[in-house]
Design a binder for these strands. Structure first.
Lengths: 332, 332
DNA sequence: CTGAAAGCGCTTACAG
DNA sequence: CTGAAAGCGCTTACAG
C-alpha cells in the first residue's frame, strides 16, 4: 500500500504537508499543494482509514441501526442513507436490531471501541429510557447521534422524522368522506411512540366528523402481515360491521386485504383499505394499495447535512419533520 | 476510554501479556490469565478496533456488497449475514451497488484503505472480468472474498450459492405435470449468469416432456415488477396462448399476476404462476404465490464458517451449493 | 512464560 | 508556510 510518506517523497515535502493538503487545511503554499495533489493522484493514494481514525479520534463509519432490515421501510431507508453518506466519504456499518432492546444495548456497549463517526438509530420500537445516559455519554465522546424513525428530540437526540399524526388524519378523513364509516384502525399503539401518533390521527379524524371512538374498532397490532390478517379475521368473526380500514403499516394492510379476500369480502367495493408507508410492492399487488407516502431521499439528505454540520462544528437541528401525502390507488 | 495499559496495570502485568490473553495465545501462565480476564471484565475493556486493525493488518469489518438492498432477496440475506458474522465479532459494512458496475469498481478501488477483513459480493449482475485482477490483488492482500449470489468459483472466488438449474426444473415440471402447457418463461437470461441457469432449467423441463422451445414463450426481462407486468401484457396483446408462467423472480411473478388480473385472467384457474425466491410477502398476497425456496440462514452459516476457516489459516472451499425446494401455495 | 521496545499509518501541536 | 517529532492504542518479533 502506498502511504503518506510515499506521496511526500514524490512531492518533495514532508508527510505533515501531505496531510494538510489532503485534509484541506488552508495554510499550504499553492505550488506545494499542486505537487502533493499530483503525486497523490499518480500513486492512487488512499489514506488508511484505521490510521486516520486512530490518530484523529474520529472514524469515517456511521453505524446504522435498523429495526429489521427485511422490512421495506428500513431497507429503502438504508439504501438512501448509504448513498447520501457515501457522497461525503462516510461508510455505513449496518446493525440489524431485529426489534430487540438487548441487541441495542449490546451494540451501544460495543460502540465506543468501534471508532464511529456517528450512530443513526432507525427503529420505531420504544427506546428504554435507561439507555439515555449511554447515548449522552456517546455524544459527549464526539459521536453524532440521530434518530430517524421516531422522535427522540425531547430526550436530547436530534430527530429526522416523517409526519405521523397529520398523515393518518389524511387517510381516515378520506375514508370518512367517501362514506366508508365505520372505520377500523389496525396498528401499533402502545409499544411504539410513532404508532401512538398514527392512532391519534385516527381519533382526530373521527372527532372532526363527530363520530364516536368505539373500542371494538381499534386493534393494537404489531407491524406484520399476520397481525393484520388476524385482526380482520377476528372482527369478521365477531360480526363487527366496518366499511373502511386504516392500517398502521402497508404490511398490515396487505394482511388485512388477504383476510378480507379469504372471506369473500371485496376491496374496495365492500371495504376500503388504506396502508401506511408506500412500500415498493404496494403499487403492484391487486388491488393496488392506497397509502401514505414516505420520502427516504429527504431523510437521507437531512442525515448527510447533519453530518456535514457536525464536521463543521455547527449545531445539528433537534427536529426535522417531513410531510406525507395520500397516494390514491385502488384499495380506497 | 480504558486501554490495554489500564488493564495491564490493574492485573499487574505488561500490556503484551494482556494482549496475549485477550487474543487467546496459549503461552500465558494461568494465574496471570485469570487476573487479566478479571481486570478486563471489571474495567469493561473493549479493545480499540482501529488500533487492532492498524497494528495487526486485519480489521474486523466485512464489506457486504449487495445488488439492491431494497429487494427482499438482498435484505433478507443481509439480515442473516449480519447476525452470523456478529456471532464471531465481525461487523458488516454495507455497500449498496444499485446494480451499477461503476459503483462496484469505485468500491474496490477504495477497499484496500478500509482495513477490511473480507468482502462478500452479493449480486446477480455479471461482474466484469476486468475486475478479476483487482479481486485477486485484494485476496493476495489477505482479504477473504466470497461470492454469495452467483458462481464465481471458476474465476477463483469461493462461492456460496443456491441451486438454480435444478430449482426452475422443479417449477416448470410442476406446471407441465399439472397440464399448464404452454409455459411462459419470464426472467433475466443474458445479463445474469444465475438467470441463465434458471432459464436452462426451463429448457430442460421442456425437453424432458418432449415439448418444443418456442421463441415467443421466452421473455428476457429484468427482475422488476414492471418487467413482469409488461412481458405478460405483451404476450396477451400478441395473442400468445399460455397456461403457465415460470417467473425468474417473485417480483416478476407479482407483476405478471397483476397484468393477468388487469386483463381478467384468473390465477390459477386460467393461468398458473410460479415465482422464484420465496420473498416474505409471497405468502401474503392473494393468490399466495407458489415459489422456489431460499435459505439465507444456510448461506449465512457458510459465510461465517468461511471466515472462521480463513482466521484459522485453513483453505476456504471453492463452492458450497444450497438446494431449493418447491413451496406450493395458491398460484400454481 | 514474560516484558521492553518497535512500529502499523496517519495527524497535530510545537517550533521555527 | 513547513518540518521534525510525538503519539493514537494496539500487537508482535526479540530477548531473556
Amino acid at each position: 500500500m502506498t502511504t503518506v510518506l510515499d506521496v511526500a517523497k514524490r512531492a518533495g515535502v514532508s508527510s505533515a504537508t501531505v496531510s494538510r493538503v489532503l485534509n484541506g487545511r488552508e495554510t499550504v503554499n499553492s505550488q506545494a499543494r499542486e505537487r502533493v495533489l499530483a503525486a497523490a493522484l499518480e500513486l492512487g493514494f488512499q489514506p488508511n482509514r484505521m490510521a486516520q481514525g486512530l490518530r484523529s479520534g474520529r472514524g469515517r463509519s456511521v453505524a446504522l441501526l435498523v429495526g429489521d432490515i427485511e422490512q421495506n421501510l428500513y431497507s429503502a431507508l438504508t439504501k438512501h442513507v448509504q448513498a447520501a453518506l457515501g457522497q461525503i466519504g462516510l461508510d455505513v456499518l449496518l446493525y440489524n436490531l431485529n426489534h430487540s432492546p438487548d441487541r441495542l444495548r449490546s451494540f451501544l456497549a460495543l460502540a465506543p471501541s468501534l471508532g464511529l463517526r456517528g450512530i443513526c438509530l432507525a427503529t420505531t420500537d420504544r427506546i428504554p429510557t435507561e439507555l439515555d445516559e449511554t447515548l449522552m455519554e456517546l455524544r459527549r465522546g464526539g459521536l453524532t447521534i440521530l434518530s430517524l424513525a421516531q422522535r427522540l428530540d425531547e430526550r436530547g437526540i436530534p430527530s429526522i422524522v416523517h409526519e405521523e399524526f397529520a398523515a393518518s388524519l389524511l387517510g381516515v378523513r378520506r375514508l370518512l368522506e367517501t362514506g366508508r364509516s365505520p372505520v377500523l384502525y389496525v396498528g401499533r399503539i402502545n409499544s411504539s411512540a410513532l404508532g401512538a401518533e398514527r392512532y391519534r390521527g385516527y381519533r382526530a379524524a373521527l372527532a372532526e366528523a363527530d363520530q364516536p371512538l368505539r373500542r371494538e374498532l381499534v386493534h393494537d397490532a404489531v407491524f406484520s402481515y399476520s397481525a393484520g390478517y388476524d385482526a380482520i379475521q377476528r372482527s369478521l368473526e365477531a360480526g363487527t360491521v366496518f366499511r373502511g380500514v386504516q392500517a398502521g403499516s402497508d404490511v398490515i394492510a396487505l394482511g388485512a386485504m388477504a383476510a378480507l379476500h379469504d372471506r369473500g369480502v371485496r376491496v374496495p367495493e365492500d371495504v376500503a383499505v388504506i396502508g401506511f408507508g408506500n412500500a415498493d410492492w404496494t403499487a403492484h399487488v391487486r388491488p393496488a394499495i392506497t397509502t401514505l407516502s414516505v420520502h427516504h431521499e429527504a431523510t437521507a439528505t437531512a442525515v448527510r447535512s447533519a453530518f456535514e454540520m457536525a464536521a463543521a462544528g455547527a449545531e445539528v437541528p433537534m427536529l426535522v419533520t417531513i410531510a406525507r401525502s395520500l397516494i390514491v390507488r385502488q384499495s380506497a
